[in-house]
Amino acid sequence: MTTRAVDAAGVEHAKAERGARIVSLVPSLTELLFALKLDAQIVGRTGFCVHPRDKLRHVPKVGGTKAVKLDVVRALQPTHVIVNIDENERDTVEQLRAFVPHVVVTHPLAPQDNLALYALFGALFDREDEASALSLALRAQLNAAAARAWPRQHVLYAIWREPWMTVARDTYISAMLRLVNWHTLPDVPGGETGASRYPSFDLDAEWLTRVERILLSSEPYRFTTQHCDALSQHARFKGKRVQLIDGEMVSWYGSRAIEGIAYLVDYARR
Protein backbone atom coordinates (compact mmCIF):
# COMPACT_ATOMS: atom_id res chain seq x y z
CA MET A 1 0.00 0.00 0.00
CA THR A 2 1.35 3.41 -0.96
CA THR A 3 1.85 5.85 1.92
CA ARG A 4 0.16 9.22 1.42
CA ALA A 5 2.55 12.17 1.79
CA VAL A 6 0.47 14.44 4.05
CA ASP A 7 2.39 17.14 5.94
CA ALA A 8 1.74 18.76 9.34
CA ALA A 9 -0.45 21.43 7.72
CA GLY A 10 -2.71 18.73 6.31
CA VAL A 11 -1.50 19.26 2.74
CA GLU A 12 -1.10 16.15 0.60
CA HIS A 13 1.89 16.25 -1.71
CA ALA A 14 2.32 14.19 -4.86
CA LYS A 15 5.44 12.03 -5.06
CA ALA A 16 8.36 14.22 -6.10
CA GLU A 17 9.77 13.79 -9.56
CA ARG A 18 13.30 12.48 -9.99
CA GLY A 19 14.71 15.97 -10.58
CA ALA A 20 13.28 17.49 -7.38
CA ARG A 21 15.28 20.40 -5.94
CA ILE A 22 15.07 20.66 -2.15
CA VAL A 23 15.80 23.63 0.12
CA SER A 24 15.72 22.84 3.84
CA LEU A 25 15.11 25.59 6.40
CA VAL A 26 15.29 23.16 9.33
CA PRO A 27 18.75 22.04 10.55
CA SER A 28 17.72 18.64 11.91
CA LEU A 29 15.71 17.87 8.78
CA THR A 30 18.63 18.76 6.54
CA GLU A 31 20.48 16.01 8.38
CA LEU A 32 17.51 13.67 7.81
CA LEU A 33 17.50 14.38 4.06
CA PHE A 34 21.13 13.29 3.88
CA ALA A 35 20.35 10.19 5.95
CA LEU A 36 17.73 9.33 3.31
CA LYS A 37 20.45 9.58 0.63
CA LEU A 38 18.99 12.66 -1.05
CA ASP A 39 22.37 14.38 -1.30
CA ALA A 40 22.11 15.20 -5.02
CA GLN A 41 18.73 16.89 -4.62
CA ILE A 42 19.56 19.23 -1.72
CA VAL A 43 20.23 22.64 -3.28
CA GLY A 44 19.93 25.00 -0.30
CA ARG A 45 20.08 25.14 3.49
CA THR A 46 20.33 27.61 6.37
CA GLY A 47 23.55 28.68 8.05
CA PHE A 48 22.44 26.65 11.08
CA CYS A 49 22.31 23.44 9.04
CA VAL A 50 25.69 22.07 10.10
CA HIS A 51 25.29 18.28 9.88
CA PRO A 52 26.65 16.29 8.15
CA ARG A 53 29.55 18.74 7.95
CA ASP A 54 31.49 16.94 5.24
CA LYS A 55 28.52 16.97 2.85
CA LEU A 56 27.24 20.49 3.47
CA ARG A 57 30.23 22.52 2.35
CA HIS A 58 29.01 22.92 -1.21
CA VAL A 59 25.31 23.41 -0.43
CA PRO A 60 24.41 27.13 -0.73
CA LYS A 61 23.17 28.99 2.37
CA VAL A 62 19.89 30.89 2.23
CA GLY A 63 20.14 32.81 5.51
CA GLY A 64 18.92 31.64 8.92
CA THR A 65 15.87 29.75 10.10
CA LYS A 66 14.14 33.05 10.91
CA ALA A 67 15.98 35.46 8.58
CA VAL A 68 15.49 33.61 5.30
CA LYS A 69 16.80 35.32 2.17
CA LEU A 70 13.84 34.81 -0.11
CA ASP A 71 15.62 36.15 -3.19
CA VAL A 72 18.37 33.53 -2.71
CA VAL A 73 15.79 30.78 -2.32
CA ARG A 74 13.98 31.94 -5.46
CA ALA A 75 17.23 31.89 -7.48
CA LEU A 76 17.79 28.24 -6.51
CA GLN A 77 14.45 27.33 -8.14
CA PRO A 78 13.43 24.72 -5.57
CA THR A 79 10.54 22.36 -6.18
CA HIS A 80 10.32 21.67 -2.42
CA VAL A 81 11.11 23.72 0.68
CA ILE A 82 11.13 21.99 4.07
CA VAL A 83 9.86 24.15 6.96
CA ASN A 84 8.87 23.69 10.59
CA ILE A 85 6.16 25.41 12.62
CA ASP A 86 8.49 26.17 15.55
CA GLU A 87 11.63 26.99 13.56
CA ASN A 88 10.32 29.21 10.76
CA GLU A 89 8.19 32.35 10.68
CA ARG A 90 4.64 31.98 9.36
CA ASP A 91 4.99 35.08 7.17
CA THR A 92 8.13 33.62 5.57
CA VAL A 93 6.32 30.37 4.83
CA GLU A 94 3.43 32.22 3.19
CA GLN A 95 5.83 34.18 1.00
CA LEU A 96 7.53 30.95 -0.03
CA ARG A 97 4.19 29.48 -1.12
CA ALA A 98 3.96 32.20 -3.78
CA PHE A 99 6.83 30.75 -5.82
CA VAL A 100 7.66 27.26 -4.46
CA PRO A 101 5.45 24.42 -5.77
CA HIS A 102 5.71 22.37 -2.56
CA VAL A 103 6.23 23.86 0.91
CA VAL A 104 6.41 20.83 3.20
CA VAL A 105 5.38 21.72 6.78
CA THR A 106 6.64 19.65 9.73
CA HIS A 107 5.87 19.79 13.45
CA PRO A 108 7.05 16.77 15.48
CA LEU A 109 6.18 17.17 19.17
CA ALA A 110 7.45 13.85 20.52
CA PRO A 111 10.18 11.36 19.61
CA GLN A 112 7.51 8.91 18.38
CA ASP A 113 6.45 11.54 15.81
CA ASN A 114 9.68 10.87 13.94
CA LEU A 115 8.11 7.66 12.62
CA ALA A 116 5.52 9.70 10.72
CA LEU A 117 8.23 12.12 9.65
CA TYR A 118 10.34 9.32 8.16
CA ALA A 119 7.27 7.94 6.40
CA LEU A 120 6.37 11.38 4.99
CA PHE A 121 9.82 12.01 3.53
CA GLY A 122 10.16 8.42 2.38
CA ALA A 123 6.87 8.55 0.46
CA LEU A 124 7.46 12.04 -0.91
CA PHE A 125 11.02 11.52 -2.16
CA ASP A 126 10.85 7.81 -3.06
CA ARG A 127 13.00 6.70 -0.14
CA GLU A 128 10.66 4.18 1.51
CA ASP A 129 13.39 1.60 2.15
CA GLU A 130 15.70 4.12 3.80
CA ALA A 131 12.79 5.49 5.85
CA SER A 132 11.85 1.99 7.00
CA ALA A 133 15.41 1.35 8.17
CA LEU A 134 15.35 4.55 10.23
CA SER A 135 11.98 3.58 11.71
CA LEU A 136 13.30 0.20 12.82
CA ALA A 137 16.30 1.84 14.49
CA LEU A 138 14.11 4.42 16.23
CA ARG A 139 11.67 1.81 17.52
CA ALA A 140 14.58 -0.15 18.98
CA GLN A 141 15.77 2.91 20.93
CA LEU A 142 12.24 3.76 22.11
CA ASN A 143 11.78 0.19 23.32
CA ALA A 144 15.14 0.26 25.12
CA ALA A 145 14.16 3.45 26.95
CA ALA A 146 10.74 2.05 27.88
CA ALA A 147 12.24 -1.19 29.20
CA ARG A 148 13.83 0.57 32.19
CA ALA A 149 12.06 1.77 35.34
CA TRP A 150 13.18 5.38 35.65
CA PRO A 151 12.68 7.28 38.93
CA ARG A 152 10.44 10.32 38.46
CA GLN A 153 12.21 13.67 38.68
CA HIS A 154 11.27 17.31 38.18
CA VAL A 155 13.84 19.08 36.02
CA LEU A 156 14.61 22.56 34.77
CA TYR A 157 15.87 22.56 31.19
CA ALA A 158 17.43 25.98 30.52
CA ILE A 159 17.89 27.11 26.92
CA TRP A 160 18.84 30.78 27.48
CA ARG A 161 19.91 33.35 30.04
CA GLU A 162 19.41 37.13 30.25
CA PRO A 163 16.55 36.45 30.29
CA TRP A 164 16.44 32.91 31.59
CA MET A 165 14.27 30.73 29.36
CA THR A 166 13.04 27.15 29.53
CA VAL A 167 10.65 24.82 27.68
CA ALA A 168 6.93 24.19 28.08
CA ARG A 169 5.50 20.71 28.68
CA ASP A 170 4.22 20.22 25.11
CA THR A 171 7.54 20.81 23.37
CA TYR A 172 9.62 18.12 21.70
CA ILE A 173 12.38 18.59 24.30
CA SER A 174 10.01 17.92 27.20
CA ALA A 175 8.64 14.84 25.45
CA MET A 176 12.19 13.53 24.96
CA LEU A 177 12.97 14.00 28.64
CA ARG A 178 9.82 12.11 29.62
CA LEU A 179 11.34 9.00 28.03
CA VAL A 180 13.49 8.78 31.19
CA ASN A 181 10.65 10.02 33.45
CA TRP A 182 12.03 13.55 33.77
CA HIS A 183 9.26 16.15 33.88
CA THR A 184 10.02 19.75 33.06
CA LEU A 185 8.96 22.67 35.25
CA PRO A 186 7.07 24.92 35.15
CA ASP A 187 4.11 22.63 34.56
CA VAL A 188 2.52 24.73 31.83
CA PRO A 189 1.38 23.96 28.28
CA GLY A 190 3.04 25.98 25.57
CA GLY A 191 0.24 26.72 23.15
CA GLU A 192 1.18 27.92 19.68
CA THR A 193 3.37 30.97 20.24
CA GLY A 194 7.12 30.98 20.73
CA ALA A 195 6.92 33.03 23.94
CA SER A 196 4.59 30.56 25.64
CA ARG A 197 6.34 27.45 24.32
CA TYR A 198 9.69 28.74 25.56
CA PRO A 199 8.78 30.84 28.63
CA SER A 200 11.13 33.15 30.48
CA PHE A 201 11.51 32.97 34.26
CA ASP A 202 13.30 34.59 37.19
CA LEU A 203 15.62 32.72 39.53
CA ASP A 204 13.37 33.69 42.46
CA ALA A 205 10.31 31.96 40.94
CA GLU A 206 8.52 29.92 43.60
CA TRP A 207 8.17 26.79 41.42
CA LEU A 208 11.97 26.43 41.28
CA THR A 209 11.89 24.96 44.80
CA ARG A 210 10.34 21.80 43.26
CA VAL A 211 13.19 21.34 40.77
CA GLU A 212 15.43 18.34 41.55
CA ARG A 213 17.85 18.55 38.60
CA ILE A 214 18.99 21.52 36.47
CA LEU A 215 19.99 20.86 32.86
CA LEU A 216 21.88 23.61 31.01
CA SER A 217 21.70 23.06 27.26
CA SER A 218 24.51 23.53 24.75
CA GLU A 219 22.10 25.27 22.38
CA PRO A 220 20.71 27.72 21.47
CA TYR A 221 22.66 29.33 24.33
CA ARG A 222 26.03 27.67 24.89
CA PHE A 223 26.11 27.12 28.64
CA THR A 224 29.48 26.26 30.19
CA THR A 225 30.85 24.71 33.37
CA GLN A 226 31.17 28.24 34.74
CA HIS A 227 27.39 28.63 34.51
CA CYS A 228 26.99 25.28 36.28
CA ASP A 229 29.28 26.39 39.08
CA ALA A 230 27.46 29.71 39.47
CA LEU A 231 24.01 28.10 39.67
CA SER A 232 25.28 25.47 42.10
CA GLN A 233 26.17 28.31 44.48
CA HIS A 234 22.80 30.01 44.10
CA ALA A 235 20.73 29.76 47.29
CA ARG A 236 17.78 28.26 45.39
CA PHE A 237 19.86 25.42 43.95
CA LYS A 238 22.33 24.47 46.68
CA GLY A 239 22.55 20.71 47.00
CA LYS A 240 20.81 20.12 43.68
CA ARG A 241 22.42 18.58 40.62
CA VAL A 242 23.38 21.10 37.93
CA GLN A 243 24.61 19.60 34.64
CA LEU A 244 25.44 20.47 31.05
CA ILE A 245 23.49 18.56 28.41
CA ASP A 246 23.95 18.23 24.65
CA GLY A 247 21.09 20.26 23.19
CA GLU A 248 21.38 18.74 19.73
CA MET A 249 20.84 15.26 21.13
CA VAL A 250 17.72 16.30 23.03
CA SER A 251 16.11 18.80 20.66
CA TRP A 252 16.97 17.60 17.15
CA TYR A 253 14.30 15.41 15.62
CA GLY A 254 14.72 13.50 12.35
CA SER A 255 17.51 10.94 12.07
CA ARG A 256 19.32 12.46 15.08
CA ALA A 257 16.53 11.21 17.36
CA ILE A 258 17.88 7.67 17.10
CA GLU A 259 21.27 8.65 18.48
CA GLY A 260 19.63 11.20 20.77
CA ILE A 261 17.52 8.66 22.65
CA ALA A 262 20.55 6.43 23.18
CA TYR A 263 22.46 9.47 24.47
CA LEU A 264 19.66 10.43 26.85
CA VAL A 265 19.31 6.91 28.26
CA ASP A 266 23.06 6.78 28.94
CA TYR A 267 23.01 10.31 30.37
CA ALA A 268 20.16 9.51 32.78
CA ARG A 269 21.98 6.43 34.09
CA ARG A 270 25.04 8.40 35.22
Rank of each mutant, 00 (worst) to 15 (best):
M1Q: 12
M1W: 08
T2H: 12
R4W: 09
A5G: 07
G10C: 08
E12W: 10
R18W: 12
A20G: 11
V23N: 00
S24P: 05
L25F: 04
V26H: 00
V26D: 00
V26R: 00
P27H: 03
P27M: 02
L33I: 02
F34W: 08
A35L: 09
A35D: 01
L36C: 03
K37V: 10
A40K: 12
Q41V: 07
V43N: 04
G44S: 14
G44E: 01
R45M: 00
G47H: 12
C49A: 01
D54R: 07
L56A: 05
R57Y: 08
R57S: 11
H58W: 11
P60T: 04
K61Q: 12
G64Y: 07
T65E: 03
A67I: 00
K69M: 08
L70I: 02
D71T: 13
D71I: 12
P78W: 00
P78N: 07
N84C: 05
D86R: 01
N88K: 10
E89K: 15
D91S: 13
V93M: 09
Q95V: 04
Q95G: 02
A98L: 10
Q112A: 15
L115M: 11
A116M: 11
Y118R: 02
L120Y: 05
L120A: 04
F121V: 01
L124P: 15
F125W: 15
F125G: 02
F125R: 06
D126M: 15
R127I: 04
R127C: 06
E128M: 07
D129Y: 12
A133V: 12
A133H: 07
L134R: 01
L134V: 07
L136M: 09
A137K: 14
L138P: 13
R139T: 13
R139D: 05
L142P: 03
L142D: 11
A146Y: 06
A147Q: 11
A147D: 11
A149T: 13
A149F: 11
P151F: 09
L156R: 14
Y157S: 12
Y157N: 06
R161W: 14
E162R: 15
E162S: 15
E162T: 12
P163A: 14
W164D: 08
W164C: 10
D170F: 05
Y172L: 00
I173Q: 01
L179H: 06
T184E: 06
T184V: 10
D187P: 04
E192F: 10
T193E: 15
A195W: 03
Y198W: 03
Y198L: 00
D204C: 11
A205R: 04
A205N: 11
E206W: 05
W207L: 08
E212W: 09
I214T: 03
L215D: 02
E219P: 03
E219L: 05
Y221I: 15
R222D: 05
T225C: 10
C228Q: 13
D229Q: 15
D229R: 14
D229W: 06
A230M: 11
L231I: 07
S232C: 05
H234T: 05
A235L: 06
R241D: 14
V242R: 12
L244P: 02
L244K: 07
I245C: 05
D246A: 15
G247L: 07
E248R: 01
M249L: 14
M249N: 03
V250M: 06
Y253A: 01
Y253W: 09
R256H: 04
R256G: 01
I258H: 11
I261E: 04
Y263G: 09
Y263P: 06
L264V: 04
V265F: 08
R269F: 14
R270M: 10
